[in-house]
Amino acid sequence: MTDLTMRIWRGDENGGELVDYTIESQENEVVLDVIHRLQATQIPDLACRWNCKAGKCGSCSAEINGMPRLMCMTRMDQLPQGPVTITPMRTFPIIRDLVTDVSFNYEMAKRVPAFNPPPMPEGGYRMQQIDVERGQEFRKCIECFMCQNVCHVIRDHEENKVNYAGPRFFIRYAELEMHPLDTNDRRELVREKMGLGLCNITKCCTEVCPEHIKITDNAIIPLKERAVDAHYDPVAWLGRKITGRKKRTADEAAADRP
């Protein structure tokens, strides 16, 4: 067995530093296993969130060698030789060691207008399988917030947090926009208040998603195209100018839906 060097960020809101810990390597371990062994043998006060150890709870998000990853799904034998650097998610304020305050995401979740179906018809709601399948991909999200963490819009520009829902909530908006029973029209909302235009499609959210959700291709770009339908379409704009018709309100658009 060889020795591993684990370079872990230790600190809190008052500051911190990277500290090296040496521990014997073991076969078939993931990063979280090594963290647990370190907690058990050397640093019992190391703060770290974890829960399922199966990549389904989204608790153990961290940055491993600089890239956002789930500690429970990152195999030690797939990391390059040399010290393994583990730091907390960079985008959110630090609480302690590897634990961050992700409440920004909960505030953004509160802003999402709830699912709003039409009155229940006689016999109940009916949905076809092809309509059900469309939103399934988005429901795989485990809320690890790594997409929010890696998004440079808020990672490197704190001021944008005020009006930027972020990739995790864009998939929620997309899921609702594509739901055949939802009557809300969220296109103007995501454009005006949720910062859809701030996203410059660099696809980092898709790269880090542990559930392999095609966040950019299947949620953000379709939302951008819907915003174009509602707001930027020059042919529609010209038509409105010529005919004198005003742009439809969100309520009118929703009322036209099947």
Partner: peptide, 9 residues
Amino acid sequence: VKLGGRRGG
């Protein structure tokens, strides 16, 4: 949304 707060790392 609460802004600010020291970042880790």
